Simulated scan of single mutants.
Amino acid sequence: MKSVLVAATLFASVAHAQTAIGPWYVSDMNDGAGSFVGTINDSGGMFGKYCYVNSQSCVWMMTADVGCEAGSEYPVLLNSDSGAALVTVSCKPIDGKNRYFFNSYTDVDDAVARSSRIGFAFPMESGQFRVTRFDIRQSTAAMKALETRMRKRPERPGRPATRDTTL
Score class of each variant (00 low, 15 high):
Phe134Gln: 02
Arg149Met: 09
Ala17Asn: 09
Val26Arg: 03
Thr63Asp: 08
Phe122Cys: 06
Tyr25Ala: 10
Asn103Gly: 14
Ser43Gln: 12
Ser82Phe: 00
Asn79Leu: 00
Gly34Asp: 08
Met61Cys: 05
Cys58His: 02
Tyr105Trp: 05
Ser104Asp: 15
Ala141Tyr: 05
Ser104Arg: 04
Val131Lys: 10
Ser82Cys: 05
Ser43Leu: 10
Phe36Glu: 09
Phe11Met: 09
Lys2Gln: 14
Ile40Glu: 10
Met62Asp: 03
Asn41Leu: 04
Arg151Glu: 15
Ala142Trp: 07
Trp60Leu: 01
Glu147Thr: 12
Met124Gly: 06
Leu146Thr: 08
Phe129Tyr: 12
Ser72Cys: 02
Asn79Trp: 00
Val59Ile: 12
Arg117Ser: 15
Gly67Leu: 08
Thr132Asn: 10
Asp135Pro: 00
Met62Pro: 01
Ser3Cys: 10
Ser13Thr: 11
Gln18Met: 13
Ala70Arg: 04
Ala8Phe: 07
Met46Trp: 09
Arg133Leu: 08
Ala8Pro: 00
Ser80Arg: 01
Thr39Trp: 02
Asp164Val: 13
Thr88Glu: 12
Ala33Met: 08
Ala70Lys: 06
Asp28Trp: 01
Gly32Met: 06
Val53Leu: 07
Thr39Gln: 06
Ser35Ile: 08
Asn79Thr: 08
Gln138Lys: 05
Ile21Met: 00
Asp65Glu: 11
Phe11Gly: 06
Leu146Cys: 05
Gln18Arg: 13
Trp60His: 07
Asp109Cys: 02
Thr19Asp: 11
Gly67Gln: 09
Ala161Ser: 15
Arg99Gln: 15
Ala142Thr: 07
Ser82Ile: 00
Pro75Ser: 09
Ala70Phe: 05
Phe120Ala: 01
Gly127Cys: 04
Ala145Pro: 06
Arg130Val: 08
Ser55Leu: 02
Tyr100Ile: 04
Ser116Tyr: 04
Thr165Ala: 14
His16Tyr: 10
Gly32Gln: 06
Tyr105His: 06
Met124Gln: 14
Met143Lys: 04
Leu10Ile: 12
Ile21Tyr: 02
Lys152Asn: 15
Lys49Phe: 03
Gly22Glu: 02
Ala84Gln: 08
Ala84Arg: 01
Asn30Cys: 10
Thr140Met: 07
Thr165Asp: 12
Ala111Gln: 01
Phe120Val: 00
Thr148Glu: 15
Val4Tyr: 11
Arg137Leu: 07
Val4Glu: 12
Gly158Lys: 04
Phe36Ser: 04
Gly83Phe: 00
Ile40Gly: 03
Asn98Cys: 07
Arg159Ile: 13
Gln128Asp: 15
Tyr74Gln: 04
Pro157Arg: 06
Ser139Asn: 04
Cys91Arg: 00
Ser90Gln: 12
Gly119Ala: 11
Arg156Tyr: 12
Ala12Asn: 05
Arg153Trp: 08
Trp24Pro: 01
Thr165Ser: 13
Ile94Leu: 10
Gln18Asp: 08
Tyr52Met: 11
Asn98Gln: 10
Asp164Pro: 15
Arg151Phe: 13
Phe47Trp: 02
Asn54Thr: 11
Ala121Glu: 07
Asn41Glu: 03
Ala142Ile: 05
Phe129Cys: 03
Phe36Leu: 11
Ser115His: 02
Gly67Ala: 14
Val6Ala: 14
